[in-house]
Simulated scan of single mutants.
Amino acid sequence: MIRIILADDHPVVREGIRGMLSAYDGIDVVGQAASGPEAVGLVASLRPDLVLMDLRMPGGDGVEATRAIAAQHPGTRVVVLTTYETDQDILRAIEAGASGYLLKDIAPEELARSVRAAAAGETVLATSAASALLGRVQGRQSAPALSPRELKVLGLAADGRTNAAIGAELFLGEATVKTYLSRAYEKLGVSDRTSAVRRALELGLLD
Rank of each mutant, 00 (worst) to 15 (best):
Glu150Leu: 02
Val190Arg: 09
Val153Lys: 14
Glu174Asp: 14
Gly155Leu: 07
Leu134Cys: 07
Val78Asn: 06
Tyr24Ala: 07
Val30Phe: 02
Ser99His: 12
Ser114Ile: 05
Val79Thr: 10
Asp87Met: 04
Asp159Phe: 07
Ala196Trp: 02
Val43Glu: 03
Thr86Cys: 08
Gly100Asn: 07
Gly97Ile: 07
Val51Pro: 00
Glu109Met: 05
Pro74Ile: 04
Ser128Arg: 13
Ala158Val: 00
Asp89Thr: 00
Val177Lys: 05
Gly41Trp: 01
Thr123Arg: 15
Thr66Lys: 14
Leu134Trp: 08
Asp49Phe: 02
Leu125Trp: 09
Val137Glu: 15
Val153Tyr: 09
Ala39Asn: 02
Thr66Phe: 01
Ile4Glu: 02
Val197Pro: 01
Leu181Phe: 06
Gly139Cys: 03
Leu52Thr: 10
Val43Gly: 00
Asp9Gln: 08
Arg67Ala: 13
Arg14Asp: 01
Lys152Gln: 15
Leu206Ser: 04
Pro148Met: 06
Ile17Glu: 13
Gln72Pro: 00
Ser191Trp: 01
Arg183Glu: 13
Val137Leu: 12
Pro11Trp: 08
His10Arg: 07
Ala119Cys: 06
Glu15Val: 03
Leu172Cys: 12
Arg136Ser: 09
Gly59Ile: 04
Ala158Asn: 04
Glu174Thr: 15
Gly60His: 00
Arg3Tyr: 01
Ile27His: 07
Ala44Ser: 14
Pro58Arg: 09
Thr76Leu: 01
Arg193Gln: 14
Pro37Asn: 10
Gly139Arg: 15
Tyr84Phe: 15
Met53Trp: 03
Arg149Lys: 13
Ser22Glu: 13
Met1Cys: 11
Lys104Ile: 12
Val30Trp: 03
Val13Ile: 15
Leu55His: 03
Gly173Val: 10
Arg92Asn: 15
Ser35Glu: 03
Leu91Phe: 08
Leu181Met: 14
Tyr84Gln: 14
Arg193Glu: 11
Gly173Cys: 08
Leu21Met: 13
Gln72His: 10
Val29Gln: 08
Asp9Tyr: 06
Val115Trp: 10
Ala184Trp: 02
Ala184Gly: 06
Thr194Asn: 07
Thr194Phe: 05
Arg161Asn: 05
Ile5Glu: 04
Glu38His: 06
Asp105Gly: 14
Ala98Glu: 12
Ala34Phe: 00
Leu134Phe: 11
Asp61Ile: 08
Asp89Pro: 06
Ala70Pro: 06
Leu103Lys: 07
Ile17Phe: 10
Ser191Tyr: 00
Ile69Tyr: 00
Ser114Gly: 12
Lys178Gln: 14
Glu174Ile: 10
Arg77Pro: 04
Ala119Arg: 03
Glu122Asp: 15
Met1Val: 15
Thr76Pro: 02
Leu172Asn: 09
Ser182His: 11
Arg198Asp: 11
Ile106Gly: 08
Ser131Gln: 11
Leu206Asp: 00
Ser147His: 01
Ile17Tyr: 11
Met57Val: 08
Gly135Cys: 03
Ile90Pro: 14
Val30Asn: 04
Asp159Ile: 03
Val80Leu: 05
Ala168Gln: 14
Ile27Trp: 02
Tyr101Cys: 04
Ala129Pro: 11
Leu81Arg: 11
Glu38Pro: 05
Arg161Val: 00
Val153Trp: 07
Val80Asp: 10
Thr83Asn: 07
Thr82Pro: 08
Thr123Gln: 11
Gly62Met: 09
Arg77Ser: 14
